[in-house]
């Protein structure tokens, strides 16, 4: 286990390095000029050149990247061009809100997705099954901002059950979590359904029934732990999907997380912030996958981490 963790962390370093190179290169090739954004429209050519030199943006790509990397290994994500503060501080201030939103979304995905999948598998071929699968298809295909706006319109504006936006109480959390989680819930329900149908055909389910166990016990104790394994692997991948969803959902609901930070930074070509948020997202994806791999052996004793 310890050897496994060390090896995985080693891999993670290479993944982050790769992500940083690619993102940095893409931003370098971008036609938008960050210096113009900082200097403003009325600045003289001389001012623009001064700022460019100050930020080191007149250096060749390799030099710029090397500077960034040396800062990075010392834990320095750089300074924001426009906000006059450290990127690490900006991210640290907003990360908890985003993590809370993600946790809410995962909870919502699992609760909705697993239940739907389980019910559909048990009622396979019936109207219930078909209805649930159509619903999951809608969940998978609906754009997240549309879902977000619809939820806002009905539950916040019309019914007034939840606040329209903002951050603070659990009521604020509900709608954005659902909006962010509904896509994953659609995927999970389909995955859970097919995995469950497969498991219900296995010999050990027949054994469990032959023991005289109640239907619920057979489903929850014998079938569920086996059927959930592929779903767990999916949660790790899902965290990556969240990162793109978060940018949209946080804007729709005015949620003060790193999604909004990234959105503002992209509009203003604030390269250090974009880099910082990208690296934090990459870390989240790596950690999510690692977590999924670590949890699996606790459910399935046949899997051992090597």
């Amino acid at each position: 286990m310890a050897a496994y963790l060390v090896r995985r962390l080693f891999q993670a370093i290479f993944i982050l390095l790769g992500v940083s190179v690619i993102t940095f290169a893409l931003l370098y090739l971008l036609p938008a000029d960050p210096v113009r954004q900082i200097a403003g429209r009325s600045a003289t050519a001389q001012t623009v050149e001064n700022i460019r030199h100050q930020l080191g943006l007149d250096q060749p790509f390799i030099v710029q990247y090397w500077r960034y990397l040396t800062g990075l290994v010392q834990g320095d994500l750089g300074r924001s061009y426009l906000q006059r503060s450290e990127v690490s501080e900006l991210i640290a201030a907003r990360l908890p809100a985003s993590l809370l939103l993600m946790a809410g979304a995962i909870a919502c995905e699992l609760a909705i997705g697993l239940t739907m999948g389980l019910v559909a598998a048990v009622r396979r071929g019936t109207v219930t099954d078909q209805t649930l699968m159509i619903a999951s298809f809608v969940g998978v295909s609906a754009p997240q901002f549309v879902v977000g706006l619809l939820l806002l319109y009905f539950f916040a504006v019309q019914l007034g059950w939840f606040p329209i936006g903002g951050y603070g109480t659990w009521r604020h959390l509900v709608l954005p979590s659902v909006a962010l989680g509904i896509l994953g819930a659609g995927w999970y329900s389909r995955m859970m359904r097919s995995s469950m149908i497969d498991v219900l055909r296995q010999d050990y389910i027949r054994t469990a029934r032959a023991k005289g166990l109640a239907r619920g016990t057979v489903l929850l104790r014998h079938a569920l732990p086996n059927a959930i394994l592929p779903v767990i692997a999916m949660i790790g991948i899902d965290i990556g999907l969240f990162m793109s969803g978060i940018v949209v959902i946080e804007s729709v609901f005015g949620w003060p997380g790193i999604g909004q930070l990234a959105w503002q930074a992209i509009q203003r070509v604030d390269i250090p912030i974009i880099m910082g948020v990208t690296l934090v997202s990459a870390c989240a994806i790596v950690l999510g996958n690692l977590l999924a791999d670590i949890v699996t052996p606790f459910i399935d004793p046949r899997i051992r981490l090597r």
Binding site: Y204, R206, G212
Partner: peptide, 18 residues
């Protein structure tokens, strides 16, 4: 399972792996 019990052909798959 109580009054009538049954064993099956495939011992490799008849027990729950988890």
């Amino acid at each position: 399972g109580d009054r009538i019990a049954m064993i099956f052909q495939e011992p490799m798959t008849s027990l729950n792996p988890v």
